[in-house]
Amino acid sequence: MSIQHFRVALIPFFAAFCLPVFAHPETLVKVKDAEDQLGARVGYIELDLNSGKILESFRPEERFPMMSTFKVLLCGAVLSRVDAGQEQLGRRIHYSQNDLVEYSPVTEKHLTDGMTVRELCSAAITMSDNTAANLLLTTIGGPKELTAFLHNMGDHVTRLDRWEPELNEAIPNDERDTTMPAAMATTLRKLLTGELLTLASRQQLIDWMEADKVAGPLLRSALPAGWFIADKSGAGERGSRGIIAALGPDGKPSRIVVIYTTGSQATMDERNRQIAEIGASLIKHW
């Protein structure tokens, strides 16, 4: 067993022997301040990774656009098919120029040779490549099948209805392509620590998230040296922004954090800054 596999296998073990965790309302004060600064709703939840206990939450059962955070769930569904012998990570998928959609920095470079399922998941999570996500959605049967996968996990809230990039439209009061912070946090925890996926697939999923290259201005910008984070960000229309993450000190994750916002007129930089400040408060009061 590799060191990384050992780390993920012992996530519940280490967490069980940690000192009790206590909620700190100071972080919620910052979440509410972010709402004021952005002029928009902000949803927040913080779960203990081992027990699933909610440590703090704000608007945990209000719907927010998922945006690209759905790509972690998508690759979880792909990995479940791999575990069941219905898919192979090494299978190569070929596609054409007509398949390319807006923001496809990886797939646009491989029109000639195609990409493997493993490479597509890596591109979808680490670079948020939209064509990679659409190609992977095709392998599982489309958005409705991802929703069905989530329902089978016990998540009857999260739903995907459309493809990239239309799913980022974020129309107010439109339930399409949305989740709730509580539902997303619980589902992410199941994917990373539950028995739904094999140990190898859980490790692969967290490795992809740990290698995320496009979430630097968010929670990662607030992390002290030595902290662990595996995350996936999302951005959408109407001032929408979000991030889902597993993080913790001492090089291992111990909490799940989900943050979503929508309806702001603020710039992307300002949305990023507010999420980073929430992260800084979380870490300060850990």
Rank of each mutant, 00 (worst) to 15 (best):
R220D: 02
G242Q: 00
T178C: 12
L111F: 06
F58E: 05
M209V: 00
L136H: 00
A123W: 03
S221F: 11
Q86S: 12
T178G: 03
W163T: 08
P60T: 12
Q265S: 08
V29F: 09
A225T: 08
L137T: 10
V157Q: 08
R162W: 02
T147W: 05
K71P: 01
E119P: 01
L160P: 05
S128P: 01
D207Q: 06
F149A: 12
K213R: 06
R238D: 13
R241E: 03
L167M: 12
S233M: 00
E102M: 09
D48Y: 03
N152I: 12
K71G: 01
I259G: 01
M268F: 06
T116E: 11
D33N: 06
R92K: 14
R162K: 09
A185R: 00
S51E: 12
H156F: 11
L199Y: 06
R273P: 02
P172T: 10
D174M: 04
G234K: 00
T69I: 05
D177Q: 00
T69C: 05
I256G: 04
D231G: 04
E277M: 07
E195V: 05
A235I: 04
Q88S: 14
D83M: 04
G90V: 10
M180G: 11
L199R: 09
T139R: 14
P25E: 10
V106E: 15
V72G: 03
N130I: 02
R238Q: 08
R202G: 10
S254G: 09
A280H: 14
V101S: 08
G85R: 08
D177K: 01
E237M: 08
T262P: 02
G76P: 00
Q86A: 09
E61R: 08
D99R: 08
L89D: 05
E56G: 09
R41A: 12
G216Y: 06
A185T: 03
T112F: 13
N168H: 02
G216T: 13
I125L: 10
M127W: 14
D155R: 01
G216L: 10
E56P: 01
D48S: 06
L282F: 06
M153T: 08
W208M: 12
I275F: 15
V257M: 07
D161T: 09
T112V: 13
K144P: 09
T131G: 12
A211W: 12
P143V: 08
G263V: 05
R202E: 13
T139F: 12
W208I: 03
A200M: 09
F58S: 14
P181V: 13
G234M: 06
A225F: 08
A182H: 11
D83P: 02
P217N: 12
L167C: 13
A185G: 07
L199V: 10
A235C: 04
A132V: 02
S221K: 06
P249H: 09
H110E: 09
W163V: 08
E102G: 08
I283M: 12
R159A: 12
G263W: 05
G239E: 03
R241L: 04
L282T: 09
E166V: 11
S254W: 07
G142P: 02
L135Y: 04
L167K: 00
K144A: 08
D33I: 10
S240I: 02
A148Y: 12
E270C: 11
G239N: 06
S240G: 10
S264Q: 14
R220L: 04
E169C: 14
D161G: 03
Q37C: 06
G85D: 07
L197K: 07
L219T: 03
V82P: 01
L218Q: 03
P65E: 02
M184H: 01
V117I: 10
G43Y: 00
A148P: 09
A245Q: 00
R63N: 15
P181R: 01
R220H: 04
L47V: 09
A215S: 15
M184R: 00
